[in-house]
Write a protein that binds this DNA or RNA. Structure first.
Ligand SMILES: Nc1ncnc2c1ncn2[C@@H]1O[C@H](COP(=O)(O)OP(=O)(O)OP(=O)(O)O)[C@@H](O)[C@H]1O
Length: 674
DNA sequence: GAAAGTCTAATTTTT
DNA sequence: TTAGACTTTC
């Protein structure tokens, strides 16, 4: 009956999809527009392979996020039980790490810790020293350029030229800072996101390693191929002769250029992967035609020819709505009201998807949903392991798992009352010295922490004893730090933060050791909001467009589609960036099945509250911002326009007496002094 | 001199 | 919500 299930899936496909699922070519690219069934096809392909007798562990699906991986796993499982759950679905980073950790003798780096963006900044700030800047660049900016160089396989010099044009920086100084950073990173045995891909890619350059890794997989399926960057291609290339690749993507949905992806690279797939077959899907099953008309129009406006015109199998429906407001808060209020209205009509919360451009703009929406008791999950905002209080607790685990972890030591020690960075640095040095002298970790800690409260050394010993039961270790760390944290966050939502710690403990229960736990949730992060009880019940999804890839709902609200946001003012001046912004909007518009609601804030004149150079830049850019706005030339017939703005008094013409100077009587009335 | 406390400005997108 | 600059307290 498992076979009937698989056949059932194939039968529900259209001709082109069936062709794509049953293809016999060793490498395939399914190139198709939004909602044409790419994910559906990946799932059907996996089920087809299983039916053909391919063992589940020899199939690997690469996705963009942890959520997308879970989605594929559950859809593959569907009504089949058992075997399908062993199909591996994970991100590129997750896969690279699994290979590296699974064969330390082949890849090395045993015992090194994975660090996230924030920790990289700490390390970079550490090497920058006093001024914390090089050539006027902050740690984050240098790290961005460095990561761009890695992901696009450019030299640092080239990356500087691409990312920081017109900036008069001395590339040599940046190079030195980066070298110092790399040195420190190696000393502390840290691996960054990019390092993990680089380690995997570098070892795959050895044909023996490539043949060995490739032999583990019958087929590797890659979703969202259009956002694969050169570093990830460096992993794919050497495996091409040793396994099959089945990739799906849509150039019009490439929105990760800032991370090194090039939307055009998917067009050269067939040249790059010899013998690859390119398959196309043309029919959209998701949306009604009016929604696609608007989306199609947006792409047609682009100077890049996308050669794409989505056609709705479902036929006609309602026109998309375009609502204009005075402020973003009004937008949020309207969306909340619409959700409540739908609820009154007995639509489940899960009918809705609210899309925002940035984490920041999502907050305004969140606030309104909370106010109205609307259950929601936010794909965006704070990630569980990145929130300050969780980092505090995890720092205690990290110093046990990797005693060289300076960033963790500094964080942990500075939590202790009366200890700042100077005292903490001394204690860390003392710890290193004691250990170099041959002391065990525990006695080195006892030595280094002599001047500190006794609970610290004792607590760390207790965590070390529990290191093999990670949830227990988290519990002990949280207990040890409880009074300190309660004080530190006394005015900052301590109750909510304490709940997160419980969530962390729960997640940790599934992992065998501290490093594995941290790696898992740093490499494929989970949003704080996803851990809340709401996520287990009927809820609205609020998501940044970037995190909404592949999602669909009956109703979609695209919020903040305003001048200055689409395209973002920061993208102006670079055509590639502007076109990527267009694709971001395109992704947003194509998420809706039945009802698409676009909201925007129409600002009038810039508020005069800004001062200095920023205000000058803003007003200089204002004209361009409005000129570049994607919806400027929007034909009336494509949307239902609904203004919610009050009629605004117009600027009065100057009265005739102001036409020359001195025409208003400025003299004071002297009263009876006259 | 070091730590803690306070105030202010600013916030694209993510593994 | 947090980074950072700046100020006060120990
Ligand atoms: N042959 C079909 N018959 C009926 N419905 C289909 C068919 N193929 C796909 N669908 C439906 O169309 C919708 C979109 O499919 P899917 O999510 O696979 O598209 P996609 O190409 O991955 O989209 P995106 O690029 O936006 O992520 C889903 O609801 C899916 O169930």
């Amino acid at each position: 009956m498992a076979e009937a299930g698989i056949d059932g899936v194939v039968e529900s496909l259209n001709e082109a999809q069936r062709e794509a699922v049953l293809t016999g070519a060793s490498h395939n690219l399914v190139l198709a527009g939004a909602g044409t069934g790419k994910t559906t096809t990946i799932v059907a392909r996996i089920r087809h392979l299983l039916k053909q007798g391919v063992p589940p562990e020899r199939i690997l699906a690469i996705t963009f996020t942890r959520r997308a991986a879970a989605e594929i796993r559950s859809r593959v499982a569907g009504d089949l039980a058992g075997a399908s759950s062993q199909v591996a679905a994970m991100t590129f980073h997750g896969w690279a790490m699994r290979e590296v950790r699974g064969a330390p003798d082949v890849f090395g780096y045993d015992g090194w810790s994975v660090i996230d963006q924030d920790d990289q900044q700490q390390v970079m700030r550490g090497v920058l020293g006093r001024g914390k800047r090089v050539e006027g660049l902050k740690a984050t900016q240098i790290l961005d350029v460095l990561s761009f160089a890695h992901n696009t396989r450019r030299t640092l010099a080239q990356a500087i030229r691409v990312k920081l044009p017109e900036m008069s920086v001395d590339p040599k100084a940046i190079g030195e800072a980066v070298r110092a950073f790399e040195l420190r990173k190696a000393e502390r045995r840290y691996l960054t996101y990019d390092d993990i891909l680089k380690v995997f890619a570098a070892r795959l350059a050895d044909p023996e390693v490539a043949a060995w890794v490739g032999s583990h997989y019958e087929e590797i399926l890659v979703d969202e191929m259009q956002d694969t960057n050169p570093l990830q291609w460096q992993i794919i290339d050497p495996l091409v002769p040793h396994t099959r690749f089945y990739c799906v993507g849509d150039d019009a949905q490439s929105i990760y250029g800032f991370r090194g992806a090039d939307f055009a690279s998917i067009h050269s797939f067939a040249e790059r992967v010899p013998g690859a077959r390119v398959l196309k899907l043309e029919d959209n099953y998701r949306s009604t035609q009016e929604i696609l008309d608007l989306s199609n129009w947006l792409l047609e406006e682009s100077p890049l020819g996308y050669d794409k015109k989505l056609r709705a199998v479902r036929g006609k429906g309602a026109k998309p709505e375009l609502h204009s407001f005075e402020t973003p808060a009004d937008e949020a209020g309207f969306i909340a009201a619409e959700l409540l209205r739908a609820r009154a009509d007995e639509l489940p919360w899960a009918t809705h998807l609210v899309l925002v451009r940035s984490n920041y703009s999502g907050r305004a929406i969140e606030a309104r949903l909370v106010e109205n008791d609307i259950p929601y999950v936010f794909f965006g905002g704070v990630k569980l392991l990145e929130s300050a209080h969780v980092r505090d607790v995890l720092s205690a685990l990290r110093v046990i798992a990797n005693p060289d972890d300076e960033v963790a030591w500094m964080r942990l020690l500075t939590l202790v009352p009366r200890v700042g960075d100077v005292t903490a640095a001394r204690a860390f040095d003392a710890f290193l010295a004691a250990r170099d002298g041959g002391a065990s970790a525990s006695s080195a800690r006892a030595e280094a922490l002599k001047g500190m409260p006794a609970w610290l050394a004792a607590g760390l010993d207790a965590i070390e004893d529990a290191a093999q039961r990670v949830d227990d270790a988290v519990g002990r760390a949280a207990a040890m730090l409880q009074p300190t944290l309660a004080h530190k966050y006394r005015n900052e939502n301590w109750e909510a933060r304490a709940r997160d710690l419980v969530h962390v403990e729960r997640l940790a229960a599934t992992r065998a050791n501290i490093l594995e736990f941290l790696e898992e949730y740093i490499l494929s992060p989970i949003f704080t909001s996803e851990m809340e009880p709401e996520s287990q019940q009927d809820h609205v999804i609020v998501s940044t467009v970037h995190s909404a890839k592949g999602l669909e709902r009956d109703w979609a609200f695209a919020a903040g589609v305003s001048p200055g946001s689409f395209p973002s003012a920061r993208a102006l001046g670079d055509t590639d960036d502007i076109e990527e912004e267009r694709r971001v909007l395109y992704v947003a518009l194509t998420r809706a099945r039945d009802r698409l609601v676009v909201t925007r804030t129409m600002t009038h004149t810039p508020v005069g509250a800004w001062v200095g150079s920023i205000s000058q830049q803003v007003s200089a850019a204002q004209g361009f911002v409005e000129e570049a706005y994607f919806l400027n030339a929007l034909p009336e017939r494509l949307v239902e326009e609904i203004p919610h703005t009050l009629p605004r008094p117009s600027r009065p013409a100057p009265p005739p007496e102001l036409s020359g100077p001195g025409e208003i009587d400025l003299g004071v009335d002297l009263g009876d002094l006259e």
